[in-house]
Design a protein around this nucleic acid. Sequence first.
RNA 1: GGCGAUGUAGCUCAGGGGUUAGAGCACUGGUUUCAUAAGCCGGGUGUCGGUAGUUCGAAUCUACCCAUCGCCA
Length: 522
Amino acid sequence: MSSVFYVTTPIYYANAEPHLGHTYTTVVADMLVRWNRMHGREAWSVSGTDEHGEKMVEAAEKAGTSPQAFTEQISAVFQRTWAELGIGPSAFVRTTNPKHVANVTKLLQKVWDEGWIELREYEGLYCVGCERFLTERDMKDGLCIDHERAPERRRETNYFFLMSRAFGWLRQYIEEHPDFIRPERYRNEALAMLRDESGLGDLSISRPKDRLDWGVELPFDRDHVCYVWFDALISYLTGAGYPDDPAFEARWAVAEHLIAKDILKPHAIFWPCMLHALGIPPYKHLSVHGYWNVDDRKISKSLGNVIRPLAMRDRFGFDAFRYFLLRDMSFGVDSVFTEDALVARINADLANNLGNLVSRTLNMTGRFCDGRVPEPEEPGEAEDEVRAAAETAARAVDEHVEKLEPARALEAIMRLVDATNRYVDQREPWKAAKDESRAGELRTTLFTCCQSLRAIAVLLLPFVPDSATEILSRLGVPELADEARLPDSALGFELPAPGTETRKGAPLFPRIDSSELSEGED
RNA sequence: GGCGAUGUAGCUCAGGGGUUAGAGCACUGGUUUCAUAAGCCGGGUGUCGGUAGUUCGAAUCUACCCAUCGCCA
């Protein structure tokens, strides 16, 4: 397997502040980066903001400011948010960034030179109110839905990227690479888009400047700017270091794009066709997740039910929040976000099972063994079982992350937590502590608990990094937070070594009383 | 209108031609006290969306229908 890993989130459209959907994708990317680093790979991640286009001009106007000032501000909010949550990408690409604009200009020229772009007259129904051409969906009874006025027939010249030429190639590529687009449902959708009868044709990639001047100027026609996807998608190249970073090629060869299902078409169709035209190999994977629905409706700002990541962190702690996101969404399928589900998940998994295991283990180590990891005797059957459970969990985590099933990976870790809790009950160390003749057994039990807890913390590092780091620190092996490797550091019950000083600490994940919560609101 | 996905316990979901259909949560009985009123042991529940068919046998395959969602028109 490659020693390099490269993952991207979408280049988020900078017309509103980060919400739940952005946060989810960014958290998954962060989890993958951490997991890959724990496999000894050099991991690189890219996120960014898409700042051009008509809608941005509109949003800026509404906010009473210029597109430059508006996008600058929103982009800064995105960057600050990820930084504050500790999930910042290795590189953050703004589509207005000069280096990126240079890449777009150069690549547009290249595609033009090689005959993939053509000037066409476009005729359609134009709404003066919307300042754009309408599609059937925008109209009702021949009138613009928003402005209730009849659109006028207008002609305009647009440059078209002749992507339909590459459809045959792309169809074959998708068929020959079953995990190019995953999960399978989205691969099927992409193939459906490529069927002749779908009517998908070439892509308009420009707007005349007299209608829109907020964009990258076409190098071969100064009167037009590049429109939407073309310049945004190239961010994935810019972010990976294109063209002059020596690491670019190695990164690009393993590029993993994470997106939500709403932008499947640009990523599954436009982007591979663009890369094909540029003579750049396709990305490795496109991984598509579903929507988080809030109150059974798609999250959107206009609905006013926006979940803000920083607010969630303040109320529940960011690790608890990201645990919920990773645990409760089956990657690829829509999920429902409710506060009840969040609280239930935190209490059941993190407080009652994991947090309580941490408390009882470290408390008993403190009370019965002077706060040091005890010297064990020969392991018996019960100890072997715990150890086997850790091995099973370690293997399952890798398998599931590899297949991009974080929920199952976490499920596997919780099974190890359960097994360890059962082991404690079975061995009854609190009784052994009162019986001099069982001193050896007591030491073995608490040693084993500490070992298992270390394995659990190591496995949790990519998912809940701060909490896992805290557990390792309390176990007296803080260095593992940076040095741990998967799966090895979760195996071989040898750390923390006997004699290592442990620290009990406060409850890791306090139980949340949901009745108090609802009172505290509004 | 076309294509596709989904529909399994109160909730979230797993499974997938073959004995009495699974997990977690929630609920509940017991137990324990090391622990965050946590843990552990036990318990009930389902016409597996509907109808028809293929089959010795279907929740699992096929057709149609219904509902929800997505893409396309």
